[in-house]
Simulated scan of single mutants.
Amino acid sequence: MNDLSGFQRDLLWVIAGQDQPSGQQVKSELEGYVDGEINHGRLYPNLDTLVNKSYVEKGPIDRRTNYYAITDKGRESLRNRRDWENQYVSME
């Protein structure tokens, strides 16, 4: 997961928390967290990177829309990242 940007990690967290969201659903959810709008030219290349690195799988919903789903590799990477973060930050 250290090969991902912060934005890509955020995308991965959003995808992991939803049931096969479309790109637009991921965008809407993440825009509720970040300050500002996420444009098409930023969103889809980063989603494709997650697919190409096997963190996420992509499939068709209809002719124009794809879904995204976290893979086992993606879920394990998030778990490992959380464990690593927890070494340094205690939320108590």
Rank of each mutant, 00 (worst) to 15 (best):
M1L: 14
M1G: 09
N2H: 15
D3K: 05
D3W: 02
D3C: 12
L4N: 05
L4T: 09
S5K: 08
S5Q: 06
S5T: 15
S5H: 12
G6H: 06
G6Y: 03
F7W: 01
Q8K: 04
R9F: 07
R9P: 02
D10P: 03
L11E: 01
L11G: 02
L12K: 01
W13V: 10
W13N: 07
W13Y: 08
V14C: 06
V14Q: 03
V14A: 09
I15E: 00
A16N: 13
Q18V: 03
Q20K: 13
S22D: 07
Q24I: 09
Q24S: 15
Q25H: 12
Q25A: 15
Q25P: 03
V26T: 11
V26L: 09
V26N: 13
K27I: 00
S28A: 05
E29V: 06
E29L: 01
L30S: 07
E31P: 02
Y33E: 15
Y33C: 09
V34K: 14
V34S: 07
V34N: 03
D35A: 08
D35V: 12
D35Q: 14
G36E: 07
E37D: 05
E37P: 04
E37T: 04
E37R: 03
N39W: 04
N39F: 10
H40D: 12
G41N: 12
G41M: 02
G41C: 08
R42Y: 11
R42L: 15
L43R: 04
Y44E: 10
Y44M: 15
Y44V: 13
P45N: 04
N46T: 05
L47E: 11
L47T: 05
L47P: 02
L47F: 05
T49N: 13
T49M: 11
L50C: 07
V51A: 00
V51H: 00
V51K: 01
V51L: 04
N52W: 10
K53M: 03
K53I: 00
S54I: 06
S54T: 13
Y55K: 03
Y55W: 00
V56S: 08
V56E: 09
V56H: 14
E57I: 05
E57G: 00
E57V: 14
K58R: 15
K58E: 13
G59N: 07
I61T: 10
I61F: 06
D62V: 02
D62W: 00
D62I: 00
R63M: 11
R63S: 14
R64G: 12
R64N: 11
T65A: 03
N66L: 04
Y67N: 08
Y68F: 15
Y68L: 00
Y68W: 02
A69D: 08
A69W: 04
T71F: 03
T71E: 12
D72T: 12
K73V: 10
K73I: 09
G74D: 06
G74A: 01
G74S: 05
E76G: 06
E76F: 07
S77A: 15
S77T: 04
L78V: 02
L78R: 02
R79C: 12
N80Q: 15
N80P: 03
N80F: 01
N80T: 05
R81L: 15
R82C: 10
R82S: 14
D83Q: 15
D83L: 12
D83A: 13
W84H: 11
W84P: 04
W84V: 08
E85C: 05
E85M: 00
N86G: 05
N86T: 04
N86C: 06
Q87H: 09
Q87G: 06
V89S: 03
V89R: 01
M91V: 03
M91E: 09
E92A: 09
E92M: 08
E92L: 11
